[in-house]
Simulated scan of single mutants.
Amino acid sequence: MTTSAAGPVPGSFEVDRSAEVVAASFARTADPRLREVLDSLVRHLHGFVKDVRPTVAEWEAAVAFLTATGQTCDDVRQEFILLSDVLGVSMLVESLNQAAGDGLTEATVEGPFHQIPSPPRRLGDDINVAGRPGEPCLITGRVVDRVGRPVAGATVDVWQADASGFYDVQRPGELAPGELRGLFRSDADGRFHFRTIVPAHYPIPTDGPVGDLLRATGRHEYRPAHVHVAVAAPGLRSLTTHLFVAGSPYLDSDAVFGVKDSLIVDFARVDDPARAAAAGLPNPFRHADFPVVLDRAEGAKGPAS
């Protein structure tokens, strides 16, 4: 502790006590959770800096990188989410906040492309409304709680890339907003189904700071093929997850660490004219079935599940 002619100066800055001094400045924080978060942030951040010992030029470069990350964000692109994704933080937060085991469907990252609302659609609709080229596909599923009771009226929000690996927000001149997106509601038995095309694996955007980071570290920018699914229902814990296409490249090295074995789904080839006609698809087509098991929300009332 620094001293003066008048005695010790408690709040003076010292390297050995830097985190302690800064954390003490938050002592009057009214929100206890905010105080807890700031204390931990300061402790770990100061520990990181003491471990790495960056030069002033290196710290300025880090600040410039974060500044550029923020400047890259706009209404349809969130570079900070992308940064969180490639550092594995998004996946860690999802995993810590989503119960796993006991047959519950596992969560994964939302990703940076859920920036516009999915248009409401009827069960069985084709979300490939513009008829983009690709393998026709039927996706079916059923939403149940952890003891197998069907969840009627659950919202099932889906969005995906096309067969060339692009989302609508990435190709505004070619894909209309809402293309390859849909907001469905499960029926009385908890079931949902819709038509689409099989998505492709694709690179995450690399024309910003996150791309610079990947190139500097020798990492690739690809994600395996997948369909995003977000499910919500009253009294149940909301879920954000993916259907990963079995056999897709990069399942073993997803750039954002989103793959879990339980989420890899067989998009089986179906060669059956009668089934194709019933589904409203050309023959042959691909079919993926994805049951969704939700946990009860914390504090929800009702029978134990």
Rank of each mutant, 00 (worst) to 15 (best):
D75G: 02
F65I: 01
A99T: 11
L87G: 14
E79M: 03
L104D: 08
Q78R: 10
G88E: 14
M91T: 12
D75M: 01
N97P: 00
S90E: 15
Q98F: 02
E79D: 09
R77A: 01
R77M: 02
F80Y: 07
G103C: 09
R77H: 13
L66S: 10
E106V: 12
Q78E: 11
T108C: 12
G101C: 09
S84Y: 02
G88A: 12
S90I: 05
M91W: 04
M91H: 13
M91R: 15
L104T: 09
V86D: 07
R77S: 02
L92H: 06
D74L: 01
V63H: 12
E79C: 03
F80M: 13
D85R: 03
N97A: 14
T72P: 00
A99F: 07
S95R: 14
L87Y: 11
L92K: 12
S90L: 06
L83C: 01
A107Y: 05
S95G: 10
T72N: 09
L92W: 07
T69G: 03
C73K: 05
A99G: 11
A107L: 04
T67G: 10
E94G: 08
L66I: 04
D85I: 03
A100F: 06
S84R: 03
H114Y: 13
T69N: 05
Q98R: 12
S84N: 11
H114L: 12
L82K: 02
E79I: 00
G101D: 05
E106G: 11
L96S: 07
V63K: 14
L66C: 11
G103N: 09
V89I: 15
V86K: 02
E110R: 14
L83S: 00
E79S: 11
